[in-house]
Design a protein around this nucleic acid. Structure first.
Lengths: 207, 207
DNA sequence: TTTCGGGTGTTACCTCTGTAACACCTTTTT
DNA sequence: AAAAAGGTGTTACAGAGGTAACACCCGAAA
């Protein structure tokens, strides 16, 4: 995203206050749920996650964003621009805040920037759609199978490295860690998979 | 959306095939899940719903769109433009298909159109976010309370008119109709609500 | 080295909710 | 008016998964 912004005007806007740079510490909250969204935010460095936290404190991690990605893009031009979920810096994070009207002006002057923006926003909407498609109202076993098939394809191997903790995986699925653990054990007993703390191996390809 | 399209060029594009008009019968499928999205679609008349249908045939109605709304807007500029869910005409429906590149050209020439588009796409993304926020991985009772609070605010009354059937409500929540029915009965027995086939009344405002 | 925090694995218990089957009612079609 | 189609309410049953409690393991800090 950043690459598509014209360098010169970026400097300019930073001086006039249309753009600004803000830093957040590890695990600090960038936006609470229901907070109003004023600016588009471009991640300069760090890791940002979007999660739903319910009254009981249960977590559902909805999306993760890294350097050069944007936050609030699906929101900023809405008639009702309030963050529906909590936005947190998972690592120390620096972001560039871009004023909405300035952004719109830039779009009109700079079609490639608009194009990039439209792509990113569309891809983000798909993440939400996928979340609903793959994890919502499915059994834990179905969620696990969805996950394994996706990772197996991505890593091109039946032996899947878990690059996240099982705890984080449970949060991605929106289930209890113990329930995930229980279901994995069941699948192992049935001879479908084997696993340790860091990886899972698919024994029956068709699961 | 349609109002923002310049009349003259619309006629033109219809003749050159960049735009086209298609009709669908009641309950016919407009797009299957995983089908590629080629065009932006503007609903000229009718009712379109987006739903997830799992292998067992369970429904989760994700969104409903009516006249002048758009379908595929969150998708069309994605790098991976495949419909994540099924799109169905719930009533006889006529849509205007708009070619992607033609649309982009129009955006660059017509900022108000771009603005309208960005607003609609943002609002649609919020629908998905809300779906996750209010209905995903919650108990049926929590879903009911979310729904009642929202409708009570919207209708500005504790006596809520259900303008949809309970069957449709169950599909919106992604639960079985009988389970919804059972939970409503429980809440009635606890003195929280009263209801009939067409309306629900909140007896304890704090539920 | 010891200590401590956090992830992992396991299990008994119990609640929630999907399933299936039925009766009843309303609306639409014939 | 009769028949067909579809929504509504209810309940016994069974399975999935949340809760809580515990043991174990590993890596970082002291």
């Amino acid at each position: 995203m950043l690459k598509s912004l014209p360098r010169e005007s970026t400097k300019n806007y930073l001086q006039t206050g249309k753009f600004s740079i803000v830093s957040y510490g590890k695990n600090s909250i960038i936006h609470f749920a229901d907070e109003r969204c004023h600016d588009l935010e471009i991640i300069l460095s760090g890791k940002v996650i979007v999660e739903r936290i319910d009254e009981a404190g249960n977590l559902l991690t909805v999306a993760e964003f890294y350097e050069d990605d944007i936050v609030g893009g699906n929101l900023i031009f809405s008639q009702n621009p309030y963050y529906p979920m909590t936005v947190t810096a998972r690592l120390p994070t620096t972001i560039l805040k871009v004023d909405k009207e300035t952004l719109f002006k830039l779009f009109c002057q700079n079609p490639p920037l608009l194009r990039t923006y439209l792509e990113i926003v569309a891809d983000h909407a798909l993440i939400l759609g996928d979340k609903i498609k793959h994890y919502v109202n499915k059994t834990i076993r179905e969620s696990i199978i969805s996950f394994l098939k996706y990772e197996s394809k991505k890593q091109n191997s039946r032996h899947i490295e878990l690059n996240i903790t099982k705890k984080a995986l449970a949060e991605k699925m929106g289930v209890q860690r113990t329930s995930l653990s229980r279901e994995l054990a069941k699948m192992r007993n049935e001879g479908l998979i084997s696993y340790d703390a860091r990886s899972i191996k698919i024994l029956k390809p068709d699961l």
